[in-house]
């Protein structure tokens, strides 16, 4: 079980969180001007990297805040965490893996 460094509550066990998948997925700003391809790319396609993954976590059994974690998907080591949602500029701070 991972230990997720919630930027608001400190390190907490994974069971308190939900993982919200890849961060940085942009919902097209003007859906009406967006092609079917662009729209379904937003809906379905994912980077799914073997390496560092920026992903959203939600502290559901805690502060209920969303934040972004950078985690290596092979070692599962957590490299950084930023305290804002995906639209804000991430303030990355080192976190203990």
């Amino acid at each position: 079980m991972l230990e997720i460094p919630c930027p608001f509550c400190g390190p907490r066990p994974e069971v308190e969180f939900r993982c919200g998948g890849e961060a940085d997925i942009r919902r097209p700003a003007d859906p009406d001007r967006c092609s079917d391809r662009a729209w379904t790319d937003y809906l379905w396609n994912r980077t799914n990297p073997k390496g560092v993954h920026r992903e959203r976590w939600w502290h559901v059994h805690g502060c209920r805040r969303w934040f972004v974690v950078s985690r290596h998907t092979v070692s599962d080591t957590i490299l950084a965490v930023s305290d804002s949602g995906q639209t804000a500029q991430p303030q990355e701070t080192a976190a203990d893996g």
Binding site: M1, E14, C19, R71, T73, D76
Partner: peptide, 13 residues
């Protein structure tokens, strides 16, 4: 498990 991983491991929970 709930997160993307290539580690062939998961959480005991």
């Amino acid at each position: 498990d709930q997160y993307v991983s290539y580690s062939q491991r998961g959480g005991i929970q």
